[in-house]
Design a protein around this nucleic acid. Structure first.
Lengths: 374, 374
DNA sequence: TGGGATTTGTCCGTATGTATA
DNA sequence: CTATACATACGGACAAATCCC
């Protein structure tokens, strides 16, 4: 949080960096464990054939980065929580003021708040890292290559960064949460995603319970392709006809367009227009509500609403509606578990598809975190 | 943005810190100006009666903090934009996930984005600093005492920090934006605030234009006291009767309560209930809308709405309403100007009360920034 | 195009100060 | 009180970069 930047010097300082690298690698690889005592200065001087100042400068940097702590007369020790073992990075592609910031990121930050209380502040958020030219990208790289992080968790597949050394080299474990399309070069990072079809299925079931006859869906434009695969079969399986006209979308950058679409949908003759609507992205809810209010349709009577919601976020609905919930905390936990496993050399974990739940099925985070071994 | 923390060593290092302090003070006081060349190392050694390494370590820290840059054979120079002259801190009392985060902070961040493009990224945001125990407070103090900041701008009067050394000592210029109550010990910091009475006045005028007969106001609970001073006279001056029953509030922590209040207000018999409503805080708009929608009142016909809005924020209204705008960019500019003046030793600037404007009166930031000399 | 001059930055070996078990 | 280990400091040497002639 400090203003200071960790600028690596322009020169190389081979000896100093040699010592730093050697000790740091030993910590990263587990040869030196938290609490272990380092040799005394004179011993390190001999081991590395270096002088007092050089050894000390190397240790200074390791101390600054939190790898070791010195305890006066007791000696110098590996820190209890060296960053390379305990400090994860969560990468969000945008910052909160960016037009493409979404409710999903809000939910992630909220989950983090809850998790961090049980996890001793181990997750650092990097906002606005989407492409190489983004302001914070260099500092992320710095932190990764200086091993100040135990792993990276991308809130979205870092598509624009696929061909950067950061992603190609994977010097530290990295996972990404991706629900939608597959992207070449990122497959090995995908560890978690939401099962969009389960959300649609749950929405169908809720609307069925309210005797809906004609169901419509409004989604984010980029979701249309993944949806196209399961849309018709799932709707049919739940007894709904699949009507392409009732399946509309708005782009994330212009979510307000969803208002017009909602209005248009409800402008059809009463016996033809939908009497059930699934808003498959929480970011579209305000706009859709705005549109529906203008039409004067009686929501809850003439039209039943179901909306996607990312769990820890508040459902601040203007109109009465049911929730189809994706639990972001669950996603975070799975990703962290996978990162931990990867760090231990286990890369066998299969990507998990998280299913949508109703609000009655939300579990407390405390149990969940405990059951995952945090 | 880096993970690394700027931990000052546990020991004192008198010589090294002596050199750092001397050079840094010279920069802060303007004895050394950006672009000036420092004496060569040997000269510094002689001046401070210190050895090579000591001088170099001192310079290393100044380089890390951005006070000086070294250009190889050309020598070592004062940085073009040393932090103590160019790097301001904006302090927000909460973080975006805190229940007391408000739309005002959103607007501030948006203004900053605009400003930073013309100002070369000189403003750093410290989130979640409200009281001494807050996580980021120590790093803020660090940055202030290491003179890594040219000044502080508090988004709200730092009431909980009044008796901390940070506020009492004022080692760097500090200003605060406060619209409401005065707080002892902070008077000298107040430099800017919004003229709440002008907002009410403008709201009255807009509602008058729509032939409103009975005007109601919903505000944030803490605003009731400042409002009480001008409420009646301003409403009377605009031809409205002042009815305490039509003047309600909801606390920021429970803004959703405003929905019930709005419902209750509109439950009165049609000829008695208000036909004009001023929502004097943007954070209450969603809740009030939710409440009004439930009542089925025809907004724009049976009830005219006017709502407060912080300018660069999007007006994402669900219901048709007019805006009473406070321009946050203007506030930011004034505060920065005042900080600059304070730094130059001019503490004579009187606090400015910014008046509310209509959307037609919004000016482009470009002109405004230019006219302020940035 | 190249080589000397200058300045920065790293490193060595040693010495001293300081906190503490 | 003493021994130990960390931390700062000294002066000299030298490598690396680069401007200037």
């Amino acid at each position: 949080m400090s203003v200071a930047s960790t600028c690596t010097s322009t020169r190389q300082a081979p000896k100093q960096n040699g010592i730093i690298d050697k000790l740091r690698s030993a910590i990263v690889q587990g040869k030196l464990k938290p609490g272990d005592r380092l040799p005394v200065r004179t011993e390190l001087e001999i081991q590395h054939n270096a002088s007092r100042v050089t050894v000390q400068k190397a240790l200074d940097e390791l101390i600054r980065d939190g790898f070791v702590v010195s305890k006066g007369k007791l000696g110098t020790f590996i820190a209890d929580t060296p960053p390379c073992l305990n400090h994860y990075g969560l990468i969000l592609p945008f910052s909160p003021t960016h037009p493409r910031w979404t409710g999903y990121y809000d939910a992630l930050m909220l989950s983090l708040h809850e998790l961090n209380e049980s996890l001793q502040d181990q997750i650092h958020v990097y906002q606005g890292i989407n492409r190489v030219t983004d302001e914070n990208f260099p500092s992320l790289c710095d932190d990764v290559y200086a091993r100040r992080l135990a792993g990276l968790l991308f809130a979205e597949g870092p598509i624009e960064l696929t061909h950067t050394p950061l992603i190609r080299e994977q010097v530290i474990p990295m996972v990404a949460s991706m629900s939608g399309n597959h992207h070449p070069g990122l497959e090995h990072m995908v560890s978690c995603g939401f099962d969009l079809s389960s959300g649609l299925d749950l929405a169908c079931k809720i609307l069925r319970q309210h005797d809906v006859q004609r169901m419509a869906v409004i989604m984010i434009s980029t979701a249309r392709e993944p949806f196209s695969k399961f849309m018709e079969p799932i709707m049919n399986a739940n007894g709904f006809a699949y009507n392409p006209v009732f399946c509309q979308s708005a782009p994330m950058e212009h979510r307000e367009e969803a208002a017009c679409i909602a209005q248009l949908l409800m402008s059809l003759p009463k016996e033809q227009r939908p009497d059930g609507l699934y808003i498959s992205d929480d970011n579209l809810v305000p706009a859709v509500c705005r549109g529906l209010i203008k039409t004067g349709v009686k929501v809850g009577v003439e039209l039943h609403l179901v909306a996607h919601r990312n769990y820890p976020s508040q459902a601040n609905h203007i109109l009465p509606m049911h929730d189809v919930i994706f639990d972001i905390r669950q996603m975070l936990s799975i990703c962290l578990k996978r990162l931990e496993a990867k760090r231990m050399g286990d890369d066998s974990m299969k990507p998990v598809k998280i299913k949508a739940i109703r609000d009655s099925e939300i579990k407390e985070i405390k149990q969940k975190v405990d059951s995952l071994g945090f």
